[in-house]
Design a protein around this nucleic acid. Sequence first.
DNA 1: TGCCAGGGTTTTAACGTTCAAACAGACTTC
DNA 2: GAAGTCTGTTTGAACGTTAAAACCCTGGCA
Lengths: 348, 348
Amino acid sequence: MATLKQVAAHAEVSVQTVSNALNAPHRLRPDTLQRVTKSIELLNYRPNRNARSLRTSAVELIGYCVPSWPNGQAHLVMDQFLHALCTAAETTSRHILLFTAPVGLEGMPVYEDLHARRLVDGFVLSQTETHDPRHGWLKEQEIPFVSFGRVWKETTQPGPFVDVDGAAGCAAAVRHLYDAGRRRIGFLSWPKSSGLAEDRLSGWSDACKQLGLSTSGRAMRCVDDTIDEGAGATAELLDATEPVDGIVAISDVLALGALSELNRRGLTAGVEVGVTGFDDSPLASVVSPALTSIRQPMDQIATELIDILTAPTRRSADNPDADPTPARSSTERLLQPELVIRGSSAPG
Amino acid sequence: MATLKQVAAHAEVSVQTVSNALNAPHRLRPDTLQRVTKSIELLNYRPNRNARSLRTSAVELIGYCVPSWPNGQAHLVMDQFLHALCTAAETTSRHILLFTAPVGLEGMPVYEDLHARRLVDGFVLSQTETHDPRHGWLKEQEIPFVSFGRVWKETTQPGPFVDVDGAAGCAAAVRHLYDAGRRRIGFLSWPKSSGLAEDRLSGWSDACKQLGLSTSGRAMRCVDDTIDEGAGATAELLDATEPVDGIVAISDVLALGALSELNRRGLTAGVEVGVTGFDDSPLASVVSPALTSIRQPMDQIATELIDILTAPTRRSADNPDADPTPARSSTERLLQPELVIRGSSAPG
DNA sequence: TGCCAGGGTTTTAACGTTCAAACAGACTTC
DNA sequence: GAAGTCTGTTTGAACGTTAAAACCCTGGCA
């Protein structure tokens, strides 16, 4: 509970000198610095963040809206994401502030309020939906944000984003199955309305074409992300005239459905049929045989998000000709996922 | 970006009057209040939380350490918990601040730092472990906190806590299976070192005894919380001289293992053998037949946690004889879980 | 008429920092 | 030796809010 003033008195310098010792130590003469540092340690002084924020008008907090899934469908990798995000934030001495808000445009007043009351400097958006209205709104309000995930709009995406190249991930899965000898590879997808789904599907489809594999009748649309739906779609793929010997699923849950259907038919995943999932959720390693899955690089995603959000804003462009193309100026970053290979796609 | 001063000028009153309009409206004459309110709305004024916190030395932020699971084992209901916690906090105009810290005593400097720098008023602990050292440490430092989960110490628990009566939950599961005609009910547990596990096991064991059911040889200890372990233990229970016809699992993952083993043997969960899990995680409703599971009342847990943490602290006891037993003085609250019945325990 | 009470409002002074400007020395420079 | 340039330190003011005290009315009462 010591304050700058007390430390200053103890070290027999002015408060500003103590402040400098912490924020600009190079300005002090070595012996002064040491004396002040000693007093700081002795009194166990910690700067009061509220006072600092009041003065500098930067709170070093980043808002994140904790998603609510009305249908009880959970985000199985949310804890991974949050952990990565926190860690990344902390490397820049920032923290994550959680809040809830209604989905879509309705929730925007909450975002605005948090920013106006100076509870946060900006936002990280996730659970980005196709045509997500939040991005445009925030940009218009000039509230800093960065998005995990694209809005899949026809026009250019409002604001900076980080996303994972789902198409590349699925293509890698196809090539992996191909290398293991699979030649009839199906795809378990979601309804067409999802930009995310179409992206991943295109990866599967393009890779198949490139390898000379047929795709016709092999893309299944599952209405819900459940094991049952995945199992049903898998059944169809297996009962076709040319039954598949490989399945790339758009989610781990659908892949689990595939495993379950194979199991029911006395087939072994990784032997008769290769199966891959998406997200490398906790499910993947808990099932047997363990599920090969496409892992989003959470740590890297989080680092990029924080990096973009905390980069010195050149929004107001007061210095127009100063370093026109700084090292990391791009605010649209597409990261490569990693195929985590386990038993479900290859024996052993 | 309007300030009190600007609102005051606009409404032609002093700043303090505007402040009162927000914090103590009853002090103003109705017409003044209306005038001020109008100016506030017109200028879209929002109080600066940093200035307020500096003055009142209360930040209205609650710290929560986002758990890291080194073994990749995720907390499947963490998102439920976080959502509930946020919502509960927001009803008292507070928010949740996330941070990371090393596990155990090693992480305590992080807690102390966050508190000393006034980033948070207090902490909500979860992932409470047997003999968790954090509680005692925080209590000693007089840093406010409340725990979700007990430390299972021999001595009295340091500090307030909220927990779920796991024993009661398991007992309810046993009775439910009994009502469905099951008479040989096994239990899938974890190693003995966990207080949590022993509590839940005692619920199963007591309920069985009360109903005149044998428990001998029917409590299985699974080393890891994986489907494989659950399946293996289930196999043992089914291969016994008197095979079980009901299984109460200490986690949804182990229950999934049970389902998988039943499936493998051509048995149907809910028909030949009744199975229940614990936590009502997303897995429960995604599997088929859906898993009967013991649900922790997350919303209630969160509400109680926030309630305890934000209750006027009578720590310093300046007014020793003022209302000696306030309405909700207890700081040890044991909540009842709810058995969510689905297909895995009863046909239909 | 003079005094008191109390509601409603304003004034003053903090809360703990940092920014910007001022200042004091020592050291160059011509 | 006067003027200029550093380097290190201090002074004064401000960030936006609230607690506490002071103040000004109006009305009641003796």
